[in-house]
């Protein structure tokens, strides 16, 4: 792959739309289902993923010639786990208030498929700068998808958005429970792909 093909904008739109981790790649669906009952949960998990994705992408891309082909998967896992633990300890010491909010999410990230798949597919074959923006795009795309799912579920399940009361009652509590995550993601995924096809057809016609 030639690094010059990757511009900042191309990487960001790739992560947000073209290869959106949730709606297109369908990776890391487990946290996406479990953690999206509110917008805030989606945002915090997205933030944690964004940081670890960017840091791991950059690390792997810097050392990509050093890491032996046969042991790249364990090497990636070590790199991800190191960044997760470093951010966990640093936040606990220097941002205790914020850490209290985000601690639950940070610890989950080691096993996210999206992170290791970007290391394998992109960062191990590209230079540092495109890898950095690939991490940004994927992290933001993950955050965007989680917040969108969170919006739908929080509004339908609790009648609130970001904890602010919109409806004075809870329309369908079902939407707050984990199984509803599958329905919410399925519905939004279908809409997402339908809109993209419409857009591509419209652009092809012009």
């Amino acid at each position: 792959m030639d690094a010059h093909e990757h511009t900042v904008l191309e990487r960001l739109s790739n992560g947000l739309i073209k290869e959106n981790p949730i709606f297109k790649l369908a990776l890391s669906m487990c946290p996406a289902v479990a953690m999206t009952n509110t917008v805030r949960n989606g945002f915090l998990l997205g933030l944690a993923v964004l940081f670890v994705q960017v840091a791991s992408n950059v690390t792997v891309s810097v050392f990509r010639r050093f890491i032996h082909e046969r042991i790249r998967i364990p090497a990636y896992i070590i790199i991800i786990a190191t960044w997760v633990s470093v951010s966990d300890m640093t936040l606990a010491a220097y941002a205790p208030g914020f850490y209290k909010e985000i601690a639950l999410y940070v610890k989950l990230i080691v096993v996210f498929a999206i992170i290791i798949s970007r290391l394998e597919v992109f960062a191990s074959r590209n230079t540092v700068w495109p890898s950095f923006w690939d991490g940004m795009g994927m992290g933001l795309g993950f955050m965007f998808a989680l917040m969108l799912v969170g919006c739908l579920r929080e509004f339908l399940g609790a009648g609130t958005l970001w904890g602010v009361e919109i409806l004075p009652f809870k329309p369908f509590f079902f939407w707050s429970l984990p199984p509803a995550g599958f329905f919410a993601i399925g519905l939004i995924m279908a809409l997402f792909i339908w809109l993209e096809r419409r857009f591509n057809a419209w652009r092809a016609k012009r």
Partner: peptide, 17 residues
Amino acid sequence: NLLVISLVSAALLGLVF
């Protein structure tokens, strides 16, 4: 290769800890 990666990671974690 794996040993070096683990050592660097362990040193970093130890330092931060």
